[in-house]
């Protein structure tokens, strides 16, 4: 059977399963991305704080997580949490290895990794704010939180969009690694399909094309978002 026949939506086709798996990929990537955004915000706040301890912790976090392979982090999360769960379930009489839920561990793992990257993006965005605006806000008597909400956040969010778009693309591709812990996302579905039909090239090519499609569409979304956010901003160059 040729590739198109193989990927049809008929009873013998793999079209539906591949599309469903694409949905899982987007879902797990989005969850990881949001966990990362949360961690990134916390990290950026810590790295910009006046407390030395917080700055050191944030620095350590971003250095380590950006310095070790993502695959290692995913393995660590999966095996680490599985061994905790296995120990706990042994107390209740279960035997042997109990796997951690793959979606949750996968999303958390890429969340922790992408948080390290997002932290740098947010930090850069806040630092890109002109000092005068913050001083002006203070001169008006705005308390810190109000200043953050009205002055810092709207502008920093705008500066952060291009960098965040890059991180999203990274997360999307990273999500393929979650296949190693058994979550049936696009990559894993392609493995299953190629295993049962012995047509690996067709399946991986399709998976690649679907990844490319998600990348292209999300690239368009981010370009649109940037355009929207940059309305009314005078460009220097």
């Amino acid at each position: 059977m040729n590739t198109l026949g193989l990927m049809s939506f008929g009873p013998d086709g793999w079209g539906y399963s591949m599309l469903a798996a694409t949905g899982t990929t987007v879902a797990v990537a989005a969850c990881g991305f949001f966990v990362g955004a949360l961690l990134g915000c916390l990290g950026a706040a810590a790295s910009l704080s006046r407390l030395r301890v917080l700055r050191l912790v944030a620095d350590f976090y971003t250095t380590v997580l950006r310095g070790i392979p993502d695959l290692l982090v995913i393995y660590l999360f999966y095996f680490g949490s599985s061994s905790v769960i296995s120990t706990a379930s042994a107390l209740f009489g279960a035997e042997g290895f109990v796997g951690a839920p793959a979606f949750l561990t996968g999303a958390l793992a890429i969340g922790v990794v992408s948080g390290a990257y997002q932290m740098q993006v947010f930090r850069g965005a806040v630092l890109a704010l002109s000092k005068g605006e913050i001083e002006a806000g203070r001169a008006y008597g705005m308390p810190s939180l109000l200043l953050f909400r009205r002055i810092v956040l709207p502008q920093a969010a705008r500066f952060a969009i291009p960098g965040i778009g890059n991180v999203w693309q990274l997360v999307l591709k990273e999500s393929a690694l979650i296949s190693v812990i058994g979550l049936v996302e696009l990559m894993r579905q392609a493995q299953i399909g190629s295993g049962s039909t012995r047509q690996p090239f067709s399946f991986y090519l399709t998976a690649g094309a679907l990844y490319l499609l998600i990348t292209l569409v999300s690239g368009l979304v981010f370009r649109f978002a940037e355009k929207q956010a940059m309305r009314g901003i005078r460009r220097g160059v």
């Binding site: 393929a176 990559m187 392609a190 991986y204 998976a207 990844y211």
Partner: peptide, 11 residues
């Protein structure tokens, strides 16, 4: 740049 490295390795 648009596809995961894992897909490229597997292909």
């Amino acid at each position: 740049r648009g596809t995961p490295l894992l897909v490229q390795i597997y292909i």
